[in-house]
Design a protein around this nucleic acid. Structure first.
Lengths: 373, 373
DNA sequence: CTGAAAGCGCTTACAG
DNA sequence: CTGAAAGCGCTTACAG
C-alpha cells in the first residue's frame, strides 16, 4: 500500500500538493497541469488507495455507521433491511459495521443448537423477549456500545427492541451520536424512527377480510394499533369485534399451531385468522394441513411481512407486505440527514396487500370441521 | 469523547504515562501505584474510550475484517454464517464490516421488486449466476475491493462465488491481504476455504434413502461429488444409478416444482427425490400438494441445509443439516490464524442427517398417481 | 518511575 | 503555483 508521502517523494513535490491534486476537482487546480498529471500517473501506477484511517483521524470522523442489535437472530427480513441500509450508506461513502448487542452464553447456546444440533425452528418470541431480562444483558449491551464508540462511528442504526431495561442506555447513546431506530417507534425524544404504519396494516387486513365476507375473525398476537383499527373498521359495518377474538401471544410458528387448536376448541365459528406475521401464519397453515382443514375453503389465513416463506407454502400465503430493504434504506437516509445536522421526523412506510391463495370467501358452514384425527 | 491527552493534562503526567497505565497489565507497572490510581480514576470519571482510529493508524492495522460478497442476496443461511463469524471476530477484538460486491442497477431493481412490489419469491439461481456475466460486474467488484483496501481491513472473508470472470481478481487480492473463502472450495492456491463435505452429504443421503428401501432415486441439481458418492454407494448394493436420474439445474423453488412435474412425466417409477437444497425441496413439496401426491407415502423428499423453512413446511422436511453459524465461525478462526501468520489448511465441516417427516418407506405401487387435476 | 519525541496517513490553513 | 508545519489519537522506543 503506497502512501501520499511516497508519491510525493517520487514526484518531487510536497505531500500537501499530492493531497490537493488527489482530492480537489480538476478545475480548482492548485497545481500546474504538469505536476497534476505527473502525480496522478504515479498514483495510478502504484494503485494508490487513500487510507480512511488517516483521513478519518484527521477529520475527526470514521465514515463508518454501526448497526446495533441482536444480530444473532438475523432472519432474511433483517438481512434485507441491512442490505438496503448498506447500499444507501455506501453511496454516501460510509461503510456499515455489525455490532451484535447480545452474545451471552444463552445466545451462543441457542446458536449452537440451531447450527449443529438437530435444530428446532425459529427462535420463539418468548425466548427473544427473555434476552433483555437476562442478567448478562445490560453489561453486554454496554460492551457493545463501548465497541461502537471505540470505532468512532459517525452514526448508529438501532435494530434492538427498546424496553424499560435498556431505554435509558439508548437515550444516553442517542445524545452522544446520531442515531435512528429501525422497525418500530423509539419512544425516546430526539431519536427518530423508521417503521411501517400499523394502522394501514390493520386497514388493509380489515378491508380484505370484510370484503371477502368474513365476520368472525381472530387476531393473533397483540398489536394494539392493528387491533383498534380492525375493530373500528368492522364497527363501521355494524360488526362487533370482541376482545376475546384477540389471541395475544401466539407469535411464532408453534404459536400459530397452538392458536389454531385453540380456535377449534373455543371459537369454531371463526372464518378467518389475521396473523401476527408470516411465521405464525405458517404455523396455522401447518396445523390446518395436519388436521385436515382446507385453506382457504374452511378457513382464511392472512399473514404480515411477505417473507420468502410466504411464497413457498401450500397454499401460497396471502399477506401484507412490509418494505424490507426499503426500511433499511429509509433509516440510512434519515441517519445521514441527522449526521448532516438536520432535524428529522419519523419516517412511516406504507404496507401493501399481496393477494395469493390463503384467503377466500367463507363457506356458509357453521363451524370448522377437521377431516383427520 | 475524552482523549489520553486530556487525561494526561488533568493528571499532570505525560500522555505516554497515561497510555502505559491504560494498556499494560497492572503488574508491568511502569508507573507508581498512586499515579496509576489517579489516571484510572480520571479515565473512569470521563468514561474514556480509546480510539481505534488512533491506535490502528499507529499500529498499522484496523482491527476490522471485511466480508466481501453479494450481500444483496442475503438469506438466513448467510446471515447466520455472518453471525458466527462476527462472534469469533469480536472475541478477538475485531469488528466485521459489510462490503457488498454487487450493487448494480440490476440488483437494485431486484431488491426494489422484492421490497416494494408484489414481490415474487427467492432470487432464482439462474439470475444469481447471471450477476457475474453482467457488464457492470467487474468494475463494481473492483470498486468494492477498493473500499476494502481504503478501510485497511486486516483480513477478508469471501462469500462471493469464484468463477472464471473474477478468479484473477480474487487471487490478486488474496496476495495482498489475508483471506478465507466461505461456503465452497476456492480453487485458488494459498486461499484456504471453509465448506461442508459434499461426499458426506452424498453418503448421508444415499444411506438414508437406501435403508428405507428406495432404489429409484432422482437427484436434483448437479453437484458432482454428491452424485458420484450416491452412485458409488448404490453400486455397492448392486443398484444402478443412471445418469438420466440426475436433473441438473432445478435448483430453486420453481425448479423444484418443475422437477416434480418432469419426474411424473418421464420417470413416474421414482420413489424418492434427493433435492439440491431445502428451497427446491419446498418446491417439490408445494407441487406435490397441489397435484395431490402424498409425502412421504407416495414420494420421499430429502432436502439439504436445514433452513428455517424446513421445519415450517407440511410435512416437515427431512434434510441434511449444514452448519450455519458454525461455518462462519470456522472461517473467522481460519482467518485469524492467517493474520497471525500461520499456514492454514482448508476446513471441511461435517453435515448431519435430520430425520423429520418427508422421507419414508416406499410403497409397493409401481408409479406415482396424483389425486387432483 | 516519568516524560519528550517521533511517527502512523492524512488534510488544512498559511507562508512564500 | 508549491511547500513547511501543525495536528487528529495513539504507541513505542528511548532518554532522564
Amino acid at each position: 500500500m503506497v502512501t501520499i508521502r511516497e508519491i510525493a517523494r517520487e514526484a518531487n513535490v510536497a505531500i500537501s500538493t499530492v493531497s490537493n491534486v488527489l482530492n480537489k476537482p480538476a478545475d480548482q487546480v492548485k497545481a500546474s497541469a504538469a505536476t497534476r498529471k505527473r502525480i496522478l500517473e504515479i498514483a495510478r501506477k502504484h494503485q494508490y488507495v487513500p487510507s480512511m484511517l488517516g483521513k478519518g483521524l484527521r477529520e475527526g470522523r470514521s465514515y463508518t455507521i454501526g448497526m446495533l442489535g441482536q444480530i444473532g437472530f438475523y432472519d432474511s427480513y433483517t438481512a434485507k433491511s441491512l442490505y438496503g441500509a448498506s447500499e444507501v450508506l455506501r453511496c454516501a461513502g460510509y461503510s456499515l459495521e455489525l455490532t451484535p448487542s447480545v452474545h451471552s452464553a444463552f445466545l451462543r447456546e441457542e446458536v449452537r443448537r440451531r447450527a449443529e444440533g438437530p435444530a428446532s425452528g425459529a427462535v420463539s418470541t418468548a425466548s427473544y423477549h427473555l434476552v433483555s431480562d437476562m442478567p448478562q444483558y445490560l453489561p453486554e449491551l454496554r460492551e457493545a456500545i463501548q465497541r461502537l464508540l471505540q470505532r468512532g462511528v459517525d452514526g448508529v442504526l438501532l435494530t434492538e427492541e427498546i424496553d424499560e431495561h435498556n431505554r435509558e442506555i439508548f437515550a444516553a447513546l442517542s445524545r452522544q451520536v446520531p442515531m435512528v431506530k429501525l422497525f418500530s417507534v423509539s419512544g425516546i425524544p430526539e431519536l427518530p424512527s423508521v417503521y411501517v404504519d400499523p394502522v394501514a396494516i390493520g386497514e388493509l387486513g380489515a378491508e380484505l377480510l370484510y370484503q371477502l365476507g368474513h365476520r368472525r375473525i381472530v387476531l393473533l398476537g397483540s398489536r394494539p394499533k392493528v387491533e383498534d383499527t380492525l375493530r373500528a373498521f368492522l364497527a363501521r359495518y355494524g360488526v362487533v369485534f370482541a376482545a376475546d377474538r384477540v389471541l395475544a401471544g401466539y407469535r411464532d410458528f408453534e404459536g400459530g399451531r397452538a392458536a389454531l387448536r385453540r380456535i377449534l376448541e373455543t371459537m369454531p365459528d371463526t372464518t378467518a385468522v389475521f396473523c401476527y406475521n408470516d411465521t405464525n401464519a405458517a404455523g396455522v397453515l401447518y396445523e390446518a394441513q395436519r388436521i385436515g382443514l382446507r385453506i382457504p375453503e374452511d378457513l382464511s389465513v392472512l399473514g404480515v411481512n411477505n417473507l420468502d416463506i410466504s411464497e413457498q407454502l401450500y397454499p401460497r400465503l396471502t399477506t401484507i407486505m412490509v418494505p424490507h430493504s426499503g426500511q433499511g434504506a429509509a433509516a440510512a437516509e434519515l441517519l445521514l440527514a441527522r449526521i448532516a445536522g438536520e432535524k428529522v421526523a419519523d419516517r412511516i412506510l406504507a404496507p401493501a396487500l399481496i393477494e395469493r391463495e390463503s384467503c377466500g370467501v367463507p363457506r356458509a358452514q357453521e363451524r370448522l370441521l377437521p377431516r383427520k384425527i
